[in-house]
Amino acid sequence: MQELLKSFLGDNALVYIIMGVPPLIFILLYALVTLYMEMKVSAHIQDRVAYMRTGWHGVLQPFADILKLIQKEDIIPAQADKLLFTLAPYLVFTGTYAGFAAIPFSEGYIGSNINLGVFYIVAASSIVVAGLLMSGWASNNKWSLLGAMRSAAQIVSYEIPSALAILVAVMITGSLNLNDVSKFQEGGLFNWVVFGGPLPLLQKLAIIPFTATAFFILLTAGIAEANRTPFDLPEAESELVQGFNTEYSGMKFAIFYVAEYANMFLVSAVAVCLFLGGWQSPFGSALSGPIWGVFWIVIKGMAFVFFQIWLRWTLPRLRVDQLMYVSWKVMTPMLFVCVFAVGLILVL
């Protein structure tokens, strides 16, 4: 797609700006769909039905919700730091949106085809941490501050297992660029990294337990980084009102919301690209191509977004010490074992 645009516009910075638009459109559409999905799945798990009155089975409700948020009064608390308060939601969204630049939506489309790919995504998500801290401090509210601190501590801790899990996949594929990683997994379901990638059979069988563990841990760490239940301590309603976005209303709250949803997809998409073949079709060459690529990556990503929602209504919230225990004493040592074992298997 980049080459196509370049042939029209020449080698111009405008090309890169246009390249940045599709993820933004995708995030906005996806947020609407996920809003609906979250409500419906939540309701059906609890034997309810959720929206039923706006359109067929309430499909128009997300639009109504967004309209409501746009119309709402944008309240800035009198004692808040107005500049930082206004800046924070945009910073959080920027961090998440920046991550989308390295997600290959299909063979032909990737926002920025840099070599560093995943490493860049991990780095970009650190802007989110700063944004959360900013929102928590600027609100001048103890709940917000505590929520932001918890959130930052949580994201920083879970970056370590997720980076190590990424390392496991990267060791096999030999590239940080998610597009190359996806290309590497060509040839159907069993060539995906979670099944050992296109390695000789013996190596593959030896490697599967470790890749599967790494994939599972990456997914769990992703849920923690997206601040979703059971790791939603930063937003723990029963103790912290709404965490860092307690004081936010109207459009700013909507931006936080969209950023959270976008982050859910981002972590899913990274896991999908690294372990489940990204835009590769599970049936080998059948149903593959640039358009099918978009379909596959979105379907796979949405499956894990669904999984996150599903998990939300299954597990209660963890305690802070349990959260840290899982990260430092379970996931990190296990991943060290995985990294070591995968390295060993690849060398032998």
């Binding site: 799945v41 309701a43 059906h44 798990i45 609890q46 034997d47 309810r48 039905v49 039923m52 599903w310 998990l311 209504w313 299954t314 597990l315």
Partner: peptide
């Protein structure tokens, strides 16, 4: 236990809802 819980909630996804509209 997580797996057991997930199975339970997944089954509830297909239980007819009790809501009376």
């Amino acid at each position: 236990t997580v797996a057991v819980g997930l199975k339970l909630t997944f089954l509830h996804l297909f239980t007819p809802s009790v809501t009376i509209q």
